[in-house]
């Protein structure tokens, strides 16, 4: 099956030459990516998560590149924010998917089912919520943690603070 046929039923959007975006439901995304890998999209450029707080969903984005077709195909899917579980693509892409998923698990708390190792990557002694979520206010956290109210040099940070 050619790659155009695989994505044709999901209404792909062509942004410009070599950039195609497609929305796939959560249940089918693993199969679509597996078929695309067989059709020649062998390079997983990146996996990303966007936190849509108002809609209550996480949008997981897979950027796939093909060395032969020379097209960047972005597969997007939505998972609920209160139950962020998605099937891992490690069986398809191997260790390159593992490291992206491990990072996203730490930063967003998304659980990738089937990933062999989701241990913390960058943060040491972190006890707060996953830091890249939209409902975690960074600047308030930083002000509480690093800028003291009593210290003279930090007073300005408590008087004027940007949101």
């Amino acid at each position: 099956m050619s790659w155009e046929e695989i994505i044709s039923e999901y209404k792909p959007v062509k942004q410009r030459p070599r950039r195609i975006w497609v929305n796939v439901p959560k249940e089918e995304v693993y199969d679509v990516i597996r078929k695309l890998r067989e059709a020649g999209f062998e390079h997983l450029s990146a996996i990303s998560v966007t936190d849509w707080l108002n809609e209550g969903v996480f949008e997981v984005t897979y950027h796939l590149w093909s060395y032969s077709i020379k097209t960047l195909l972005t597969v997007k899917t939505k998972i609920p924010r209160d139950d962020p579980v998605i099937k891992s693509v490690v069986p398809i892409y191997g260790m390159s998917a593992w490291i992206h998923e491990r990072e996203l698990h730490e930063m967003f708390g998304v659980v990738f089912e089937g990933n062999p190792d989701l241990s913390p990557l960058f943060l040491e002694d972190w006890d707060g919520p996953p830091p890249f979520r939209k409902d975690f206010n960074w600047r308030d956290y930083v002000r509480e943690k690093f800028y003291s109210k009593e210290r003279e040099r930090d007073k300005a940070y408590w008087e004027v603070w940007l949101k």
Binding site: F122, L123, W138, Y141, V142, K145, F146, Y147
Partner: peptide, 9 residues
């Protein structure tokens, strides 16, 4: 990085 959560100030 004055508002970064992971660097010292």
């Amino acid at each position: 990085y004055w508002d970064s959560y992971n660097t010292i100030k």
